[in-house]
Computed example of a mutant assay.
Amino acid sequence: MSNFDPNAILRGAQLTVVGAHRALQNPELFTTAHYHQAAVAVCAGLAIRIILNIPIYMVKILVWIISLFVNLDHETWDDKLISGLDFISKSVLQVPFFLMMVMGSVTPTLDNLFMESLKWVDTTYVQKHKSDDPATLRGMYYPALKMYPTHGDKEKKEKRSLIDGVILFLAKYGRRAAISLAIYALTFLPGIGRFVLPTASFYTFNKAVGPVPAGIVFAVGLIVPKQYMVHFLQTYFSSRSLMSRLLEPYFHRIRFTKQQKKIWFIDRSGVLFGFSAAFTVMVKVPLLGVLIYGIAEASTAYLITKVTEPPPPPGPSSQEYIESEVRWKNKHLFLNLPLDRLDELNARMTGAEKVGRVEGTEIPRRKFT
């Protein structure tokens, strides 16, 4: 429960605000190149949205044609049909969110944005502490991370073609969409339908964050209307997918194994959910969603400096760094910081300092940001 408790989620939400504010202060975020890429992404998103909504448009046209011959003023089935299709499109299949994920899969813009923002976070930190003792400051993230290759081993350095990347992403999305539709369809079965969503949510939450949160979600799912449960579950799953995408620039360079990466996410699950939940909702806003996605990626650079330690340059020490980062060593320290001292983790701390702070000793009054 400690990985996904309310305090961890709150700290993640705080990082959303602070990270976005820090990212928006970066003048490089508003360059002509980024504006051009954003404009292209918005146009492409509109085109894809129209294409994916063609079946809904066809049903609406069919209903309109029927209304020319049949008086539907006193009928409700047509309104229920159209609203049901809209609900499936936006809440079950998550089409608006899918559009943003496609854009993130086919362009390197977000990787560049992450690295540029990470450079800005380091630069801002150095500027604010130029008069401090360097021995008390944390290490830098950007100089080391930029030295890592982004495609792993030599045989993986050959980039997939754009079409192959899109096909792979569509296959993953198609599988998830099919499972979502199947679960949603099972909720209409008489007798057992009301237990489908709570059971599915318990199974998933138990694997991701443990039995206590899963049990709470199961109990709530038996009470609240189905539509609210669908919105909540899809927001949770979408936030996980979004967070995974936002962290790809980091994981493309720091190569965790599949099991190490799974533990990495579980150990930070509450903070990551709190960070990504607000962005998940805003990303679905038409037209502005792709711009919010860019801000979310830029903000992730700030998040990384809170949930990891600065990496070493590539070499023998990098594997030792990966093994040490699987578990979040500063978790209790970070979660126990007062709300107005959120940035005080940005210190180069000795082992004794870390132990003392976690055990409840007073945090030295330094200038941290």
Rank of each mutant, 00 (worst) to 15 (best):
R175P: 07
A33Y: 01
T199K: 00
K284R: 10
M115F: 13
R348I: 02
Q259G: 06
G274N: 02
N346K: 05
P338V: 04
E320Q: 12
I254H: 02
M282A: 15
P6M: 13
P316N: 10
I48L: 15
A301S: 09
V281T: 03
K159F: 04
T150P: 00
L29P: 05
K207M: 02
L137H: 09
I54D: 00
F275Y: 15
T76A: 10
K157R: 11
Q227W: 07
P316T: 10
F205C: 01
V70F: 02
R357F: 15
D340G: 08
F114M: 06
S238E: 10
S91C: 10
R22I: 09
L137W: 08
L345Y: 00
R245C: 14
H129T: 12
T124L: 12
F98Q: 05
V17F: 15
P312K: 03
G274C: 12
P211Y: 15
F368H: 09
D111C: 07
A144N: 12
D153N: 11
T31W: 03
I223D: 00
A33V: 10
V285T: 08
N206G: 01
T204E: 09
Y35N: 11
M1R: 08
S244H: 02
F368M: 12
V220P: 00
P27N: 06
L247M: 13
G270I: 13
L246S: 07
A277R: 12
